[in-house]
């Protein structure tokens, strides 16, 4: 009897918490299906207006920004993995002089406020003609994604038993082959997780595209932010755009659910 009561109390607590965190999201989805003249507060939409999604997609360059962000995100992740994987391997396996200082400063980058990089980059980009270009954005995002990938990949590599690599070395594999043929297949899920987490970092970033792009390389975040600046304050369209922008993130999160804690702590604590 006492046990049932205790369990009921726990369920009640969980249900309240779940409501607090879920209701705003559900409200957004409901709002995205309303007419602009509908009651904005709590009522459900009288009749779902799916056209809001089509209109959001067409408004304010949203569709172009969507594909821009995909392109920039994938570009940034590819470079970060290609450059970051060997560095992570080196940090995990070799006694390279200055390694501690180097990996320490990569971590320190996580602490620095974005504006420290963005102001000098802005001046540089204006002079070099990289301002408002996709390649400029891809390069700038390395500031976030490269250290992130190196730290995450390193923590995945450290979990691979060294014996496996030693065996390959005894069989005459070169160091490149050991990394390519032995370590990489074992940490493949880690590579996927690092890529997805880095992509999400690009997808959600606001300050980088705000500072370094204008129209040609604008991303989803900036477009969403700009919706609020348009004359007609159209809640359903804003909500619809927000939902579209969030869908890729939800799909990706589903993919790497297992590695979320590693992602949030840059591999700092082990599950």
């Amino acid at each position: 009897m006492k046990k049932t009561l205790y369990h009921t109390a726990l369920y009640m607590g969980l249900a309240v918490l779940a409501m607090v965190f879920l209701l705003p999201v559900l409200w957004m989805v409901a709002t995205s299906l309303k007419n602009p003249v509908d009651d904005t507060s709590l009522a459900l939409p009288s009749k779902p207006v799916w056209g809001n999604y089509a209109e959001a997609w067409r408004t304010g360059g949203f569709s172009a920004a969507f594909f821009n962000t995909m392109f920039i995100g994938i570009g940034a992740v590819v470079i970060s993995i290609l450059a970051g994987l060997p560095m992570a391997y080196s940090f995990a396996r070799y006694r390279v002089r200055g390694r501690g200082a180097l990996s320490g400063s990569l971590f320190a980058l996580r602490i620095l406020p974005e504006m420290v990089f963005l102001l000098p980059l802005y001046a540089m980009y204006r002079k070099l003609g990289l301002f408002d270009t996709k390649i400029g954005m891809i390069l700038a995002f390395q500031i976030i994604t490269l250290p992130y990938c190196v730290w995450l990949l390193r923590s995945f590599i450290l979990q691979v038993p060294v014996d496996l690599e030693e065996a390959a070395r005894v069989d005459g594999c070169s160091e490149w082959l050991v990394l390519w043929r032995v370590t990489l297949p074992v940490i493949a899920p880690g590579v996927v997780a690092s890529s997805v987490l880095s992509f999400i970092a690009v997808w959600t970033s606001l300050l980088f595209p705000l500072a370094l792009s204008y129209s040609q390389s604008q991303t989803v975040s900036v477009t969403i932010a700009n919706f609020k600046g348009y004359g007609t304050f159209n809640w359903p369209i804003m909500a619809a755009a927000s939902v579209i922008a969030t869908i890729p993130q939800i799909l990706f999160f589903g993919l790497i659910n297992r590695y979320l804690v590693a992602g949030l702590t840059m591999g700092g604590v082990k599950e």
């Binding site: 965190f21 705003p24 959600t204 969403i224 932010a225 979320l260």
Partner: peptide, 25 residues
């Protein structure tokens, strides 16, 4: 419940901002 509690993490900060600007109107 775990999925429900971590759901807001799947929303970007600017989307959270847009949503709460309306919620707090």
């Amino acid at each position: 419940f775990r999925t429900a509690l971590m759901f807001p993490l799947m929303v970007s900060d600017i989307v959270a901002a847009v949503a709460w600007k309306m919620l707090l109107n």
